[in-house]
Amino acid sequence: MAHRPLAVITGASSGIGYELAELCAGNGFDLIIAADEAQIQDAAQQLEKHDVQVAWVECDLAQEEGVEELLEAIGDRPVDVLMANAGHGLGHGFLDQDFDDILHVIDTNITGTVLLLHRVGQQMRDRGSGRILITGSIAGFIPGAYQAVYNASKAFLDSFSFALRAELAETGVTVTCLMPGATETEFFARADLLDTEVGQSKKDDPKDVARAGYDAMMKGQGDVVSGWHNKLQTAIANITPAGLLASRHAKTAAPGSGN
């Protein structure tokens, strides 16, 4: 019996990742979903309503062992869609942050993501087909005072996605970068940003963000910035001096700025 196409989604326990999984399941993809929290099992049970196969992996994608655990779950089955969405934020001043927390952001957002892309991307290239969606951020365009490591990690992913897309241009594998702005997810609570102006501001609906990313990926587009206000913010960032951008970001992300 022929298998349905397979989508692998990281950071899929809630927020944008869960909504991406919903879209894939609703369009007939079997799923392997992963996250670093037990909520991933609940997400899998909810996704089974689409009458597709759903496997879940609770693993820390900041660790090589966690990535290997996910790869083991994939096994030899061809991956048709890889959505590298897992990511962590971290608020407060860089020098006030615990360095283990800093490393976890870097290893989740960059190291683990790049390792997963390297392994699954090789399989896709060898097969001559596949779609990759990387969740970057408009934060990658802005020096993120009081979110310095997070914004820098997203700058890496935004840049990396365009480079990888160019390398795979003639292979049948597409790479799309989804660049959302502030979105209504658990991100701000987990990053300890709830007392900031950005943490208390109106945010985008993760369903809308996921839909923009999914549609762009299926069309083979290189990137998508979700929401007109985020498009405007990105355009302004491209012509604004970096020092001014950092100062403006400080005003919205500094601890207590939401009071």
Rank of each mutant, 00 (worst) to 15 (best):
M1T: 01
R4M: 08
I9H: 09
T10S: 13
G11L: 04
A12E: 15
I16E: 12
I16S: 13
G17T: 13
L20K: 13
L20M: 15
A21V: 06
C24T: 08
C24W: 11
N27P: 13
A43G: 05
H50A: 12
D51W: 00
Q53D: 13
E58S: 06
C59P: 00
C59I: 02
E65D: 12
V67F: 05
E72K: 04
E72F: 01
G75N: 10
D76Q: 06
R77E: 14
M83K: 02
A84P: 06
N85W: 01
A86F: 13
G87M: 12
G87E: 15
H88E: 14
G91R: 09
G91I: 07
G91V: 06
Q97G: 09
F99L: 10
D100A: 12
I106E: 09
T108R: 00
T108N: 05
G112F: 06
V114P: 11
L115E: 15
L116S: 11
R119A: 13
G121T: 05
R125V: 12
R125Y: 02
S129L: 05
R131N: 14
I132N: 14
I134K: 11
S137G: 11
F141Q: 10
A148N: 10
S153Y: 09
A155N: 03
F156R: 08
A163Q: 14
A166Y: 04
L168K: 10
L168F: 01
A169Q: 13
E170V: 03
T171Y: 03
T174S: 10
V175Y: 06
V175G: 08
G181E: 05
T183A: 05
F188I: 05
S201T: 08
V209I: 03
A210Q: 14
A212Q: 13
G222Q: 12
V224H: 03
V225R: 09
S226D: 06
W228M: 02
N230Q: 07
A237P: 07
N238G: 03
I239K: 06
H249Y: 01
H249S: 04
A250G: 03
T252K: 11
A254G: 00
